[in-house]
Design a protein around this nucleic acid. Structure first.
Lengths: 143, 143
DNA sequence: CGCAGAATATGATAAAAATCACATTTCGGA
DNA sequence: TCCGAAATGTGATTTTTATCATATTCTGCG
């Protein structure tokens, strides 16, 4: 469903959204152990996120990565699309190309609305909204 | 969610269930192009399925793979567990170990009951039931 | 200006998943 | 009883994903 990389990226984005802003940046080495992602792999992922405008960064001393107000208004789907591409998440359960609700593959009904429900949520939920849940204790952001 | 291998295996099992029985077997080379799976990779998958009792086989001339009456009464989950192992399907969206509905990770609610719904269906639907849908035209089994 | 601290770029290595190739075993039939 | 047809067993190769390492560029600050 989601690649490992996408999971890593989501964790990182949520961590940044919770702990950083324009005036309070963090470096990869401050983050990786908190979210349990290998350091240099995380670095690569964050570069990709940064290049695609999902997170922000600045170089040099006092630099680092952070989530701007603009960043956290992005829907979660953007994170996974940047990392996994657009296809992976939406591909049918049997990887049939012509599979949709009109012409369902044999497993289509078993998944039911499960997958589309998840995708819909990823599309409609912003990073900001999600960390709201964490802040209010509705869910946990784990290591 | 499901590995490529598991998808291949499901396709193969469903194909066998539709087109074979004790008296009417098929060889890998008769199947692979129909379900669009590389021949020798399919061979390996089918050996695994056969060894684990998901499908049946007999050697020698007039031999081949087939789905017995006993086979098609198995729930679909058995197919994916044999190929992907038991963990993969049930692992949390962020791969957090201590994530459940009591202690949900940040993404838990986004997936909602989607995943458990799918798993439940895999557990409760037998191969036979599923091909019923295909036979009655409710769904398609594609190449 | 220039140095040091940071991200960025590039590419090498390792591990896992997918694919291929072939030798071995089993079995039915002539 | 022997030959050939088929699955089975084993392992090598390729591709993708994940991981590591290092050189390069940018930037704030003294």
């Amino acid at each position: 469903m989601l690649s490992n990389s996408a999971k890593y990226a989501l964790k990182a984005v949520l961590y940044l959204a919770l702990h950083t802003n324009e005036d309070n940046k963090l470096m990869v080495k401050d983050i990786y152990s908190r979210i349990n992602v290998p350091q240099s792999y995380l670095a690569k992922l964050m570069q990709k996120l940064s290049k695609n405008g999902i997170i922000s960064s600045s170089r040099g001393p006092k630099g680092g990565f952070y989530a701007s107000n603009q960043n956290i208004d992005l829907p979660l789907i953007r994170v996974v699309e940047v990392i996994d591409g657009e296809q992976r998440l939406r591909s049918c359960m049997l990887s049939i190309h012509e599979c949709d609700s009109e012409n369902p593959c044999a497993l289509h009904d078993l998944v039911g609305n499960a997958n589309s429900f998840f995708i819909k949520n990823l599309e409609e939920t912003t990073i900001k909204q999600l960390i709201g849940d964490v802040k209010s204790g509705k869910s946990v952001l784990p290591l």
